[in-house]
Write a protein that binds this DNA or RNA. Sequence first.
DNA 1: TAATAACCGAGACGGTACGTCGCGTCTTAGG
DNA 2: CCTAAGACGCGACGTACCGTCTCGGTTATTA
Lengths: 191, 191, 191, 191
Amino acid sequence: MGGPGRPRSKAARSAVLRAALEIVQESGYPVLTMEGIARRAAVSKQTVYRWWPSKAAVLLEALNEGATEIAPLPDTGDLADDLRAFLRRSTLGARGRTARLLVALMAEAQLYPAFGRSFQTGFLAQRRAVMVELLQRARTRGEIRSDVDLELVTELFFGALWYRLLAGSGTLDRRFADQITDLLLRLVAEA
Amino acid sequence: MGGPGRPRSKAARSAVLRAALEIVQESGYPVLTMEGIARRAAVSKQTVYRWWPSKAAVLLEALNEGATEIAPLPDTGDLADDLRAFLRRSTLGARGRTARLLVALMAEAQLYPAFGRSFQTGFLAQRRAVMVELLQRARTRGEIRSDVDLELVTELFFGALWYRLLAGSGTLDRRFADQITDLLLRLVAEA
Amino acid sequence: MGGPGRPRSKAARSAVLRAALEIVQESGYPVLTMEGIARRAAVSKQTVYRWWPSKAAVLLEALNEGATEIAPLPDTGDLADDLRAFLRRSTLGARGRTARLLVALMAEAQLYPAFGRSFQTGFLAQRRAVMVELLQRARTRGEIRSDVDLELVTELFFGALWYRLLAGSGTLDRRFADQITDLLLRLVAEA
Amino acid sequence: MGGPGRPRSKAARSAVLRAALEIVQESGYPVLTMEGIARRAAVSKQTVYRWWPSKAAVLLEALNEGATEIAPLPDTGDLADDLRAFLRRSTLGARGRTARLLVALMAEAQLYPAFGRSFQTGFLAQRRAVMVELLQRARTRGEIRSDVDLELVTELFFGALWYRLLAGSGTLDRRFADQITDLLLRLVAEA
DNA sequence: TAATAACCGAGACGGTACGTCGCGTCTTAGG
DNA sequence: CCTAAGACGCGACGTACCGTCTCGGTTATTA
C-alpha cells in the first residue's frame, strides 16, 4: 500500500480541479489554459502535467467529481413515468453552467482524439447506458414492442438534446423533454 | 463601381481557401492556424486577416465554395420516398473527409461564439430548413398528422446524425438512414 | 535600401542591451536569463531570440557597444613607452565592473562552443592583434630582436592578465602592468 | 568511531563520481546536472545533495580522485632541465579529455564564487606552488638572479597555458612548452 | 534485544527558465 | 487601396532542473 516516495498531494489535486472549474465559469473555455490552472491553483505546472494530459482532462475529472449523478435511474415500474422523469432530469441538468462545460468538452473531444476517446467512452456512453437500461427493464415488463432498437431510440433522445446544446436550435426546458418523451413513447409502445 | 485603389486579388483568395483545406485534410484542424494558412498560400498574414476573422471562417467559406449541395431537396410527391432519399443523402454526405470538416467546424462554433452564430444560422439552420420544407409539402398533401411539430421531427434526425458524428456511437451508413426514416415515418404518419 | 517589412526597432535593441548590462551589474551573470532580459527591457522574448542566440551574445554586443576602445593603440615611436602605456590601459581597463563582465563571458565561452568561437575571434583575437601590431612597428624600427615570436610574447601578457582575472592570483594594478612590461622588454630587447 | 546511524555508502559515492565523469566526457559540462548524475548513478537526488553542494564540487572531487599527479616536481639539480620537464608535463597533461574538464571547472569557478574559491585555493594555487618551489630551489643553487619575482614568473607560464586553453590561441604541444621554457630561462638567468 | 539515528531509493512538490509557436497588430516598400 | 515581407508585444506551450520534502526501508551504534 503506497510504495516509496512522497505521496500525491490531495490538496494540490483538489486545488487544480477547483481552479479549472472557476476559470471556465468566469471566463469561458478558450481562456482556460494549463498555465492558468496552475497559476490559480498555486501549483506548479509540472504537477498539473504529471496527473492530467490536457486541460480537457482536468475539466472532465472536475465534472465527474462534483456532478456524480446528473440523471440517476428512476424506477417506478411504469415506462412512461420513468422515461419522462429521466428525460426531464437529463434535459434540465444540461443547462446553465453545466451546459457551457458540456459543450466545451464535446468540442475539445472533437479536436483532440485522445481526449475524445476518453470522453466518448467515459462519459457519453455511460449516459446512454443508463437510459438503455431503463428501456430494457420496460421491455422485460412487456411495455415495449420487440422490434425496436433501444440503442437507437436512446440516440434519438441524446441526439436531440446535444443538438440543441450545440446548434442552438431551441431551448432545453421541460416542454422539450416532455415532447420528446411523448414521441419516444409512441415509437416504442406496444400496439 | 469599385472605388480607388488596387482591387482584391482573386489569386490570393483562392490560394488561401485551398491552403486551408489542404492543411485540414493533411494534418487535422488543430494544426490549422492563420499563420500556417498564410505561409502555405504564400500570402501575407495581413491579407488573411483583412478578409477573414478566423481560421474557421476561412474553412467555412472553403466548404461552401466546393460543396454546392450536400443534400438537395427531393420531390417525388411521396413522403416516404422523399424522406428516405433526403436522409440517405444527408447521412452519406457526412462521412470521410467531410465528416472531419463538419466536426471541426462544430467544435469551433462552440468555442468561439462569433463564429458559432454564423455557423448555426448560416449552415445548420439552412440544412434543417430544407428538411422542414420537405415535410411541410407532405403535410400539404395530407400525409402528415396535424399535431406533429415538424421542426422537432427535423431535430430528431439531425440530432441523431450529429450525435453519431460527435459521440462516435455508431456508423453513418444507409442502414442508419433507413432506420431513422422508418421511425420518423411512424411518428408523422396519419392514423 | 531596406527591403519590405517592418524595420528593426532600435529602441528594442538598445533596451535589450541596457537591460542585460544592468542585470549583470546588479545581480551577477548566473542570474542573467533571456527571460529576465526580455522582461526588464519590456520586450518580447521572441525579439531577443530573433537577434541574439544566447544571453552571452547579448552581453558581448553590449560590451562592444559601450567600451569601444578599452585599449587603443599608442604610438610614440618608442617601444618602451608604447608597451608600458598599452599594458597599463589594458590592465586597468579590466577591473571592477568590466572584470565581472569579462570573466563571465570567458566562462560562457567555455561552456557554449558556438559563443566561444565568436568570443575568441571577435574579441580576444582582436585585442591580441592590437598588441602584435604595436610590437611589429617596433620591430620595423629595429627595436626588437629578430628571433622573438611576437604572437607568443603577446600571449604572455594576455595570459598573465587573464590568469589574474580568473585565478585570483593577484591584483590588477599599475605595478602589475609595469612588472610585466619590464619582463617583456627584457625578452624582446635587442642585445 | 562513527556515531550511530547507517554509515555512508561507498558504493553510492563512487557511483556518483563515476557518473559525473562519464556524463561530462560523453556530453560536455553544460549537460551535466545534479538530476542527471543521480539518474545515471541510480542514486536518489537527496543523496547527491547530502554530500556535494554542486555539480562542480562532484566533478572536482572526481578529478582529484583519479588524477593523482598531473605534474610532479622534477629535481635534477639543473634549472633548465627541471623547468623544461615541468613545463612539458604540465602542458601535455592539459590536453584532450583533461582539457575539457579543466576548462569546465574554470568556467564554473567564475560563475559560482563558492566553488571558485575552493578551485582557486585547492587546485590552481597548488599547481603554482609546485613550480615556485622548483624555482626557489634553483635560486638557492644560485641559478636565478635575485631581482626576479618567482611568483610572477610562475604566473607567466600558467597564464600562457590557461590562455591557450581558454582562448584557443594556439596548440598545447611540446614546442609551446619549450618556447616558454626558453623565454623564462632567459628572464631568470643570472647575468 | 530493543531503541535510536543517520543513511538509502523513490518520487512528488512549488518554482523558474528554456526555446518555440501562434496570436493579432504594426510598419515598411512596392503594384 | 491592395499586396508581400517581416518585426513587434504578448502569452501559452510542454520539458527540464532546481532544491526541498515526505514516504517506506535499511543498516549501524548505543542502551
